[in-house]
């Protein structure tokens, strides 16, 4: 039985992974890598929910992970379509070269 890891370890790991995702979003220029960092953040939150679900014995956490995955798939489709449209229009995927909405 795999039962001797406390809940806190999973929460700490999840916080670290989330912050790695945040740093990726802040520092990178490539829209696709920013997108992948977003996925990192979503997965960190998923880990938290699965951990709570397993430790508190409630199935709701894992159901929510299922929905988060569905939303992430939808986000992937739309986000990558936006990146494609952006590349057709501006020939770049670097977010600092896109200032259409900058005043």
């Amino acid at each position: 039985m795999l039962q001797s890891i406390p809940l806190d370890w999973y929460l700490i790991l999840s916080a670290v992974l989330f912050v790695i995702g945040v740093i990726g979003v802040i520092t990178r220029r490539n829209a696709i890598i920013i997108f992948m960092s977003l996925e990192l953040m979503l997965n960190a939150v998923n880990l938290t929910m699965v951990a709570f679900s397993a430790f508190l014995g409630d199935v709701a956490g894992q159901i929510f992970v299922f929905f988060v995955m569905a939303v992430a798939a939808a986000e992937a489709a739309v986000g990558l379509a936006i990146v494609l449209a952006l590349f057709r229009k501006k020939q770049t995927v670097y977010v600092d070269e896109v200032n259409l909405m900058k005043w």
Binding site: L2, Q3, S4, P6, L7, D8, L11, S53, A54, F55, L56, G57, D58, V59, Q62
Partner: peptide, 13 residues
């Protein structure tokens, strides 16, 4: 948090 062991039903859910 003081929660150190997984719930008894973890494998089932």
């Amino acid at each position: 948090t003081g929660v150190n062991t997984q719930h008894a039903d973890a494998a089932m859910i």
